[in-house]
Design a protein around this nucleic acid. Structure first.
Length: 688
DNA sequence: ATTAGGG
DNA sequence: CCCTAAT
C-alpha cells in the first residue's frame, strides 16, 4: 500500500545495484575553515592555566566560610501553577538556571506578524545557549569552569576579611551556591557590631557582589521583582507552527535556534545556507568539548560542584569533571531534566533565613516578590533585619502529566538549587523600587525608619544585570535587541553569539561596565552604573594579568555562565507530522542516507540534524516493535509505525543484499585473481 | 562531513 | 540526545 507506493523509488535501486549515496564530491560542501582556532585555543589554555592556579590559591578561603548556620530551608511551600496546555504549548524558560540564569528567560511570544512567519520562541538550549557559550566562550561547564572559578577564588582570597564578616546564608542556600559564590551574599550582624546594612555596603565596596554576579552573571531578565509582569514565557507555540511542504514533505518549521524567520527558505544548500553564526557556533561548541580542554587544570571538588550547579550537570565521562564529588551533585545531574516537556510550572520557594527572630511580616504587598522582612532600629542606631524568606526568581519547569508529586517536588528543588547554584545576588527593594546604589546608607535610602520597614524587600536575582524592570516590561523588543540580559534560551534572538557579543558589548559597557568590573571582580553592575567604583574597591582585587584579556574581553567574564549552557540540547520530541515526514523520506531514500533524508524532509528544520533523524528512526523502529502499552510520549499513529516497520524491513533487506553482493563480488574477484592469476580475463560478476 | 552504533 | 569510531 502506501509503503509499496512509496517504495517504488527504493525498488528502483533494487534493480540496479543500490547506490546508497551520491558521490562524496557531489555532497561536499566545504566550509572555509577559519584559522583562528589556534589563537583561541591558546588563549583558552592560558586562561585555564591561570584558572588552575587561582583555584588552588583561593579554594581554601572560598570553602571555609561556610558555617554553622542553623538555618533551615523550607521548600515546602512552593506554589506550583500549572499552565493550560492547549494547542499552544507553554514555552518554557530555561532561563533561570543554567545558562539560563545567564539568559533568563525572556521569551517574547512574538508570534509573528506575518502569517507565513511563525515566530516561536522557546528556550532553546542548543541555539542560544550554545551559541552563547560561543560568545563567551569558554567557560562554563565542566571544562570551561576554570574561567569562572578563578575569579571567585581570587575574589575570596582578596576580600577574605570581608567575607568573614558576612552573614551566614541558610545552609542550603550556601551549599547550593557552593562555596564562594553566594556565601557572602548578605550579612546579618549578629549583634551590635555593624548593622546589616553596613555589612551590605561593605560587601559592595569589597565587591562582594561581584563574585556572585561574576559567577552567576545571568542577565536578570527574569526579575525576581514580581511586580514586573514578565512578558516572557508562555509564548505560544502553535502545534502547527511548522508546516509541511507540498508533496516532498519538507518540514518548514522554524527552529528555535533561529532568531530570524526562515520560512520558505529558498536556498537549498544546507551548508551554503547555514548562517555564519551557526558555523561559528558549531566551531565553538566543538572547541568547548574538544581536547583542548583537557589541558585545563583539574578543578577542585568544591569548585566543580559549584559550577556545576549553575552549569549543566556534567557527565561523568567528562574527564575534567572526574573529581566532581559534591554531595548534591546528584541533584545537579538531574537538572537537565528540568526541561522536559509537559506543563509549565512556576514555583515559589522560600528559604528561612534563620536570622534574628523577630516578628515576621509579609512583604509589602502580595505581589511583591521580595521577602518578608522586619526591621527595627535599635537604640544604637543599628538596624536589624529579619528576613523571613526569599522569593526565588521565577522558575519554569516541565514535568509530564504522569509525573508524580514526588518527582515534581524534586524538580522544583532541583530548579531552585540550580538557580542558587547558578549564582544569585540580592536585590533590595524599597517602596517597590530597586535600590541600586549600594553605597547609599540606610539612612539616605530611608531604610532606617521603622515606618519604612514594610516597604522594604529583598530579592534573589539570578542575574547580574539590574536593568530597570521597566525595560523588560515596557520595551521588550528594544530590550532584547540591545540587551543580552534578556536573551534567553527561549528568546528569539538567535543570531550568532559572536554577533551578540559585538552588539552587546556597548551595552554592557554602558550599563555596568561589566567587562571591566567583571574582570576585576570588583563592582557590581549597580555600582558601576552609578560610578561607585571606588579606588579602594579596585585595590582589593588586583587585576588579573592582562594576558587573558583577549579572552576575557567579553566572553569569559560576563557571560560566563553561558558556557554552562553548553549543555544538552533541549529535548524536542518529534511531532507526528515530523514522524510522518521522516517515514516518508526514509521510505524513499532508505536508511543510511540520513543526510539526504534531512535534505529531503527536514531541510528547514535546523534543529533536526541528520543524526537526530537517524536516532529518531532508530527509536521509531523500536517503538513500532513494542506493544502500544510500552510506548511513551505522544502516540504515533499505528499506521505510521507500520510504515516504519515496512520500510525498515525493506531497507534492511536491501542492505543485506548489497552487502551480499559486495561480498560475492569480492570473493569472485579474489577467486579470479588467485585462481587465474592476474592479468587474466576478469570475470564480471553477474549480479542480480 | 557522514554514518553507524552504543550509551 | 550525546559521543565516538570509522569512513
Amino acid at each position: 500500500m502506501v509503503l509499496k507506493k512509496r517504495l517504488n523509488y527504493g525498488f528502483n535501486g533494487f534493480q540496479v545495484p543500490f547506490i546508497p549515496r551520491a558521490p562524496r564530491s557531489v555532497r561536499r560542501r566545504g566550509l572555509p575553515k577559519k584559522a583562528d582556532e589556534d589563537g583561541d585555543v591558546c588563549a583558552i589554555e592560558l586562561l585555564a592555566s591561570l584558572a588552575g592556579k587561582l583555584l588552588q590559591e583561593g579554594e581554601s578561603s572560598a570553602c571555609s566560610n561556610a558555617s554553622d548556620g542553623n538555618h533551615q530551608s523550607a521548600f515546602g511551600q512552593g506554589v506550583v501553577e500549572q499552565e493550560s496546555q492547549g494547542e499552544a504549548k507553554p514555552l518554557l524558560t530555561e532561563g533561570v538556571h543554567h545558562g539560563s540564569c545567564a539568559e533568563s528567560t525572556f521569551v517574547t511570544e512574538a508570534i509573528s506578524q506575518n502569517s507565513s512567519h511563525k515566530y516561536v520562541s522557546q528556550a532553546e538550549t542548543d541555539g542560544v545557549l550554545e551559541r552563547t557559550s560561543v560568545t563567551n566562550h569558554v567557560d562554563c561547564y565542566g571544562k570551561t569552569e576554570p574561567d569562572i572559578k578563578p575569579e571567585i577564588c581570587k575574589w575570596e582570597d582578596k576580600v577574605g576579611h570581608c567575607s568573614s564578616r558576612l552573614a551566614e546564608a541558610p545552609q542550603n542556600f550556601r551549599e547550593s551556591c557552593n562555596n564562594g559564590n553566594i556565601i557572602n551574599l548578605f550579612k546579618q550582624e549578629q549583634e551590635a557590631g555593624n548593622s546589616g546594612i553596613e555589612g551590605s555596603s561593605l560587601a559592595g565596596k569589597c565587591s562582594l557582589k561581584d563574585p556572585v554576579e561574576l559567577c552567576v552573571n545571568s542577565p536578570a531578565v527574569i526579575n525576581s521583582d514580581s511586580k514586573v509582569k514578565s512578558p516572557f514565557c508562555k509564548g505560544t507555540f502553535p502545534n502547527g507552527s511548522f508546516s509541511m511542504y507540498h508533496s516532498d514533505s519538507k518540514l518548514g518549521f522554524r527552529d528555535d535556534d533561529e532568531n530570524f524567520i526562515r520560512c520558505n527558505k529558498i536556498s537549498t544548500k544546507l551548508k551554503a545556507s547555514r548562517p555564519p553564526h551557526q558555523i561559528a557556533h558549531r566551531r565553538i561548541r566543538k572547541l568547548l568539548t574538544s581536547k583542548y580542554w583537557k589541558v585545563a587544570p583539574k578543578l577542585k571538588d568544591c569548585e566543580l560542584s559549584r559550577s556545576d550547579v549553575g552549569a549543566k550537570p556534567s557527565y561523568h565521562k567528562r574527564k575534567t569533571c572526574h573529581s566532581f564529588e559534591r554531595g548534591h551533585h546528584d541533584t545537579l545531574f538531574k537538572r537537565r531534566k528540568f526541561f522536559n516537556r509537559g506543563s509549565g510550572l512556576s514555583a515559589d520557594g522560600g528559604f528561612s533565613s534563620g536570622s534574628v527572630s523577630n516578628s515576621l511580616k509579609k512583604g509589602m504587598d502580595g505581589e511583591n516578590p521580595s521577602l518578608s522582612s522586619k526591621q527595627h532600629v535599635s537604640k544604637d542606631s543599628h538596624v536589624k533585619f529579619s528576613i523571613k524568606s526569599f522569593k526565588i526568581p521565577e522558575l519554569y519547569i516541565e514535568v509530564p502529566e504522569t509525573a508524580t508529586v514526588g518527582s515534581l517536588k524534586r524538580r522544583v528543588m532541583e530548579a531552585v538549587m540550580a538557580i542558587l547554584g547558578g549564582g544569585v545576588h540580592v536585590g533590595v527593594l524599597f517602596e517597590g523600587k530597586k535600590v541600586r546604589d549600594d553605597d547609599r546608607t540606610l539612612q539616605q535610602t530611608g531604610l532606617s525608619c521603622e515606618e519604612n520597614i514594610d516597604n522594604l524587600g529583598f530579592t534573589l536575582e539570578p542575574s547580574s544585570f539590574q536593568a530597570s524592570p521597566s525595560i523588560y516590561v515596557g520595551d521588550p523588543s528594544a530590550h532584547y535587541e540591545t540587551s543580552q540580559s534578556t536573551r534567553s534560551p527561549g528568546t528569539p534572538v538567535l543570531d550568532s553569539g559572536i554577533t551578540n557579543v559585538i552588539r552587546d558589548s556597548p551595552m554592557l559597557t554602558n550599563t555596568g561596565n561589566l567587562i571591566e568590573s567583571n574582570h576585576e571582580s570588583i563592582s557590581s553592575p549597580a555600582d558601576t552604573k552609578n560610578d561607585n567604583i571606588t579606588p579602594d574597591s579596585r585595590a582589593l582585587v588586583a587585576a588579573p594579568p592582562r594576558s587573558t584579556e583577549p579572552l576575557a574581553m567579553v566572553p569569559v567574564n560576563q557571560k560566563t555562565r553561558r558556557s554552562e549552557l553548553v549543555q544538552r540540547r533541549t529535548r524536542r520530541p518529534f511531532s507526528v507530522s515530523e514522524v510522518e515526514a521522516l517515514v516518508k523520506a526514509v521510505e524513499e531514500l532508505g536508511t543510511g542516507r540520513w543526510r539526504d533524508v534531512k535534505l529531503l524532509a527536514f531541510e528547514n528544520a535546523d534543529h533536526r540534524t541528520y543524526v537526530d533523524l537517524k536516532d529518531k528512526w532508530k527509536t521509531l523502529v523500536h517503538t513500532a516493535k513494542i506493544s502500544p502499552q510500552q510506548r511513551r510520549g505522544e502516540p504515533v499513529p499505528q499506521e505510521l509505525l507500520d510504515r516504519v516497520l515496512g520500510a525498515h524491513a525493506f531497507w534492511s533487506q536491501q542492505q543485506n543484499v548489497v552487502k551480499h553482493q559486495a561480498a560475492t563480488m569480492k570473493m569472485i574477484k579474489e577467486a579470479s585473481s588467485s585462481d587465474l592469476g592476474d592479468g587474466e580475463a576478469i570475470i564480471q560478476p553477474v549480479v542480480m
